[in-house]
Simulated assay, not measured.
Amino acid sequence: MNRWFAVILLCLGLSLWSTSARADELRPAYIEMTEQSPGQWTLLWKASANSRLGRNGEIILPENCKATDERKREFAASNILTRLTLKCKGSIQGQAIGLKGLELSSTDALARIAPIDSAMQTVRLTPAQHVATLEKPSVISNVAATYTIIGFEHILLGFDHLFFVLALVLLLKGGWLIAKTVTAFTIAHSLTLVGTTLGFLSLPSRPVEAIIALSIVFLAVEVVKAKPDDLRLSERFPWIVAFLFGLLHGFGFAGALAEIGLPEGDVPLALLTFNLGVEIGQLAIVALALAVLHGLRKFQPSWLHPAKTATAYGIGIIATYWFVERMIA
């Protein structure tokens, strides 16, 4: 009785959490400062129009830089774009750039600085560190580290992708089978991510996001209805199911990456390391889920099936909420 009471509480908790948990939550602001001629710079910064940061945030400029005209603001999709022309005396290395208002938000910001006579720099601003000093970096290691972290965070904070991977782990048995299936998912979403980012593929985002939610509902149902003596479609051909749905999830990753922005001249490196970060995040999810299941199997085997069922119901309820929300939005 206590076991099923815990199951019910878990389902209720996950259902309530669905009102605040959102898919693809990683939507950082983006700052781009480009030197057009010696001492003459253009600045662009982008933030969600629905956020306090987009409405009230302000750029903290290097001390030796002054705006030479009024800022221009415009709406583009769901973002507010702000443009400025700057005149900077001397080098901006050693100066600080930041985003006032970021410390009050729950998002991050990327700042891309492109001088004429030195390497481009990409710095990451966070609520805990909303101002950064512009040093002379190694452009390769800087971009690689930044986009690896972004990819890792996206798989952990983009809840729909996390839930899909978690549902695969709940459904399948055997580490090797899970590894092959997650690899198929990775290959598929990498293909559509690269194709979309480079402009070879395109699908409207709203129906894609709705179908992604539906793919999670499908897997959750498969977990709940799974029987040891009657393998379901996703258990018989898991890598095919993961690959097909992975193609759609790749469009979701591409949408998130489009919101972040890619550094010109380093698009291949940014794509590669973003994918690497996503893969590291997926492996972390799989390892953690397998460890929890192994612990239940070893110390509380009678809890294993109820725990899987409760988690699948919770995932299914949240994904259904997302599907309805995306269909009517």
Score class of each variant (00 low, 15 high):
317 I>E: 00
303 W>I: 01
149 I>G: 04
321 Y>D: 06
54 G>E: 02
226 A>T: 09
48 S>M: 02
89 K>T: 13
314 G>F: 05
77 A>G: 07
138 S>D: 15
7 V>P: 00
5 F>L: 15
181 T>D: 13
141 S>C: 03
71 R>Y: 04
310 A>R: 08
152 F>G: 12
264 E>I: 09
152 F>E: 04
116 I>C: 09
297 R>G: 13
2 N>Q: 09
180 K>A: 07
279 E>K: 01
64 N>E: 06
321 Y>M: 03
81 L>P: 07
79 N>E: 15
31 I>Q: 04
227 K>P: 02
99 L>M: 14
262 L>F: 02
305 H>F: 11
322 W>A: 03
93 Q>G: 09
146 T>N: 09
167 A>H: 05
155 I>S: 07
319 A>G: 03
220 A>E: 05
6 A>V: 12
126 T>A: 08
20 S>Q: 15
50 N>K: 14
285 I>T: 14
241 V>W: 11
147 Y>T: 04
64 N>C: 02
306 P>Q: 07
54 G>R: 05
6 A>C: 11
76 A>N: 15
234 S>T: 14
257 L>D: 08
104 L>I: 10
55 R>F: 05
238 P>H: 13
204 P>Y: 08
313 Y>R: 07
262 L>A: 01
123 V>N: 04
260 I>V: 14
161 H>Y: 02
126 T>K: 08
103 E>P: 10
38 P>L: 09
103 E>F: 06
12 L>A: 09
304 L>G: 03
262 L>D: 00
51 S>C: 11
180 K>C: 10
179 A>H: 07
120 M>P: 03
296 L>F: 13
64 N>K: 03
148 T>W: 07
292 V>N: 10
239 W>Y: 14
223 V>K: 13
41 W>Q: 01
137 P>E: 07
18 S>L: 01
193 L>T: 14
245 F>H: 02
240 I>F: 14
192 T>Y: 04
4 W>S: 13
51 S>I: 08
7 V>R: 01
152 F>W: 08
64 N>I: 00
326 R>A: 01
